[in-house]
């Protein structure tokens, strides 16, 4: 099996399609471990994984913790809100302190785009991006791909609609990179305030019409909407947004009959997605959670045991 082309997982953008394939195939094997009586293998016994969660996140953090434990790794989770662990300490200070713990991998969630790149520039062990600002959330996109493939097979040629605040969504970016690399046709949809400049250059098509986005779609990904209002708001009111870009059963009729609906969670029910859709037969939202652990197990395994291992180049 080819090793990953990258030493870190900073985003999907630098990955090769073969890397994505390797990760998803490995995740499938990992998924079977979670179905056993003893949900644990000794693959990473004696390894230490630091989870650095500097932005509130329960779901992704627990998912990484479970993944590490199923591989028998020791984990150390440092979480904090805001930008530093303790007052006055910078991310660089934190990184240097971490190095003293000699971790075998560092998982980082941070509110700043590019924070994982900063760590990767100065630290030896592999750095895994668990979501950075508005940049990328690569493990989410990988688990989304795994989930869609489980239901519908390879995504090549699929029409995938991603609806919501594309400009500020790391989930959207990682999914655009993943899906276009795997040959799907990505449609981005939202009001123009939520569509970032020149996003077509990432290989996606843009529409402001929900109906056009949903027409014949194989997959629909709904993004979570920020409900806090202010002068920088991208839409005037929540009811107006829900009426214009919310997903409901009637709208979903335009999509393919076997359409799959994804949402990275947590859901604003009745706003970006109606409850009967979120809980309905098209929804794979619960599969996403299970696959999340498998994908993260795969990444930890592939990066920590990567041939030439630590100190290698990529």
């Amino acid at each position: 099996m080819p090793a990953l082309s990258q030493r870190h997982l900073l985003g999907i953008e630098p990955l090769l399609p073969g890397d994505i394939r390797t990760i998803v195939e490995t995740a499938k094997s990992m998924k079977s471990i979670s179905k056993r009586a003893i949900k644990k293998v000794p693959a990473l016994r004696g390894k230490t994984i630091v989870n650095l969660f500097l932005e509130p996140s329960t779901r992704t953090r627990s998912s990484f913790e479970i993944a590490a434990k199923r591989l028998s790794a020791d984990t150390l989770t440092l979480s904090g809100t805001g930008t530093s662990l303790s007052k006055g300490e910078t991310l660089m200070d934190t990184a240097r302190n971490l190095e003293a713990m000699a971790p075998d991998a560092i998982v980082i969630r941070h509110s700043a785009s590019g924070a994982p790149h900063m760590l990767a520039r100065i630290l030896e062990p592999p750095v895994i991006n668990a979501g950075d600002g508005s940049h990328e959330h690569p493990t989410q996109a990988l688990l989304d791909l795994m989930t869609v493939e489980e239901r519908k097979g390879p995504v090549k040629g699929f029409k995938v609609a991603i609806v919501g605040d594309i400009a500020h969504s790391r989930v959207a970016r990682s999914n655009i990179f993943t899906l276009t690399k795997m040959g799907a046709l990505v449609w981005l949809c939202g009001p123009a305030t939520m569509i970032p400049r020149e996003v077509e250059q990432l290989g996606a098509r843009v529409t402001n019409s929900m109906d056009e986005a949903l027409e014949g779609a194989d997959v629909v990904m709904m993004l979570r909407i920020q409900l806090e209002r202010g002068s920088g708001s991208l839409f005037p009111s929540v009811p107006e947004y829900a009426a214009t870009y919310g997903l409901n059963r009637a709208r979903l009729k335009r999509a393919k009959r076997d359409v799959v609906v994804l949402h990275p969670g947590p859901i604003n029910r009745g706003i970006e997605i109606a409850s009967d859709v979120a809980d309905g037969e098209f929804s794979v939202i619960l599969d996403q959670v299970e696959n999340g652990v498998a994908v993260r197990m795969a990444l930890l395994y592939l990066l920590i045991t990567r041939p030439e291992g630590r100190g290698g180049t990529a």
Partner: peptide, 8 residues
């Protein structure tokens, strides 16, 4: 396009 890619 670059700021869009980097999420900045």
């Amino acid at each position: 396009a670059v700021s869009t890619r980097l999420g900045l």
